Simulated scan of single mutants.
Amino acid sequence: MKFCSLFSGSSGNSLFVSSQDTSILVDAGLTGKALMSAMDSIGEDPAQVKAILISHEHSDHICGAGVMSRKFNIPIYANEKTWAAMERSLGKIAVHNKRIINGEASIDDLNVRTFRVPHDAASCIGFTIEDRAGRILSTVTDMGVFTNEIREGIKDSDLILLESNHDVEMLKYGPYPYDLKRRVLSELGHLSNEDAAAAILSFLDGRRRSIILGHLSGTNNVPELAFKTVENILKDAGIEIGETGEMELKLASRIRPSAYTEIK
């Protein structure tokens, strides 16, 4: 199974997942043109995408979903509350491409499971995706707190894309208006760098994993700061990071496709 973050940040999100037989997108939060260009840059054909999974209805997760669905006849999967919240924004979607996902769905050789994520959206969810060989990856962003339900949802994953949205001090003293700062810091907001590290420590069990930090804020974070903050907290806790360590730590770019990660 292969994974590539096309874009992951406050300006737009879309993740590419492929197995032996199936290619899917998790979210489609940039223009159709940008998504097609990103896929072309990594050698993937948008016409081969079998599904678009939507985590929630905010524009940085759905912006290009309608265009992609119409152009390539791709089914869009979301839960009922998210469909109700986003349908008008997507434009006309063919009836056969409107798919409801309530907990679990099979898409060719991939099995998709969902779990609730606390965010100020109609019904935000994260995804765990498993292929027939038992390789598992999870994607979870846009959470105010890291809950037990999220931990249970992702704990068996070989690869996890996890939100590391902001540096708390940069947010507090940055340009956002007070109400927006409160929203980001709330239990329905976003996970900080420190909270991302604490979340990782809560599910590590000695088995090697790949962790990719994503959904970084373009205003309240810096890639090097996010990476070093998480890395230092993990190392202080005795976690060995690297080729021979308990985990591999990477960072997803906000503005361009990141390197492929393969789960073997």
Rank of each mutant, 00 (worst) to 15 (best):
R209Y: 03
I233P: 04
D179I: 06
I233A: 10
L201D: 02
V145K: 12
I239P: 11
P223T: 00
E149Y: 06
K33S: 11
L180T: 11
V230T: 00
I76R: 10
N111Q: 09
E130P: 01
D142A: 09
Y77G: 01
T82V: 13
G43T: 00
T229Y: 11
L90Y: 00
R182N: 13
S157K: 11
S123V: 00
Y173K: 14
T244E: 15
S23A: 13
H166N: 14
Y178A: 09
F115S: 08
L30V: 09
I101H: 10
R183Q: 15
G174E: 05
G43Q: 03
V112L: 05
K228V: 08
P118H: 08
D40L: 04
G32Q: 07
R99A: 04
A199Y: 04
I160T: 09
I154P: 13
M170Y: 09
D45H: 03
N221R: 00
L251D: 10
A198L: 13
A133G: 03
N111W: 06
D236G: 08
K155E: 14
K155A: 11
F3A: 10
Q48P: 00
G66E: 00
R254M: 14
K172W: 09
K235P: 05
V95S: 12
Q48T: 07
S23M: 10
E248L: 13
F203P: 00
E80P: 04
Y176R: 13
S23L: 09
A38S: 12
K33Q: 12
L188T: 15
K181S: 08
I54M: 06
S210Q: 09
L216D: 05
E194Q: 13
G218R: 10
I100H: 09
K172A: 15
V112A: 01
K181D: 08
E149N: 14
Y176V: 00
F227K: 04
I93W: 12
S217D: 09
R132F: 02
T219E: 14
A105P: 07
A133M: 07
H119M: 03
K172R: 15
V140A: 11
H190F: 15
R132Y: 04
